[in-house]
Amino acid sequence: MKILVAVKRVIDYNVKIRVKADHSDVDLTNVKMAMNPFCEIAVEEAVRLKEKGVATEVVAVTVGPKAAQEQLRTALALGADRAIHIETDERAESLAVAKLLAKVVDEEQPGLVILGKQAIDTDNNQTGQMLAALTNLPQGTFASEVAVDGDKVNVTREIDGGLQTVALTLPAIVTTDLRLNEPRYAKLPDIMKAKKKPLDVKTPADYGVEVASKVTLLKVESPAERKGGIKVASVDELIDKLKNEAKVL
């Protein structure tokens, strides 16, 4: 079985973001970028399925600017066999990405597609579900366990207040949640080897997909700044403040 893994280049999760002075967007100039954390979990899961003999090939795909090839190389270093870069400098929203991925699914015919549940920049949490709808495949979102069993996959999902397990016919779309696995770090020899693995470059036009969206970003602002409060001297004073000033007890 072939597994397709989608990854996204985003701001590193440790970086404190800055809004541009003209409020047009978040300033990404000279900011450290990395693979989206949920996508790292997706790559790890695909590689583990290959190591277990469930998968025969892992193909990583991304939609983004030229620099996003760094994240594909990371995926290759972590164990993906080859990569597809759909290059665009436009802001590709979830729907456009899902349409592009649907074309790749059509071409590659994977048994399983694994994506992060959301990217930590736009926080949309949409692409996997949209891809499932467009390809008419079942979905197991927010997965904390993925168990392939013949022509089915059981996906345990993190839902509000607990866990839900669903059985899906294959091929299927899975999106990862935090507890699915702990991604490994790429080792230096693997990073070197990854440079030689195949990486195809395509454009949205190759797939006949229009990236433009009907959603316009009007402005981006910093949330209301939270002012630091006071230091209290004792537990008694803390309880008094919470009861009588903040009125939360």
Partner: peptide
């Protein structure tokens, strides 16, 4: 934006060929 809303609504959006606004 519960786990149900997040799970279901993007399917509607994709099938109607529209974007979704989350959260």
């Amino acid at each position: 934006a519960s786990t149900t809303g997040k799970n279901v609504l993007p399917r509607l959006a994709a099938l109607k060929d529209v974007s979704q606004l989350s959260d």
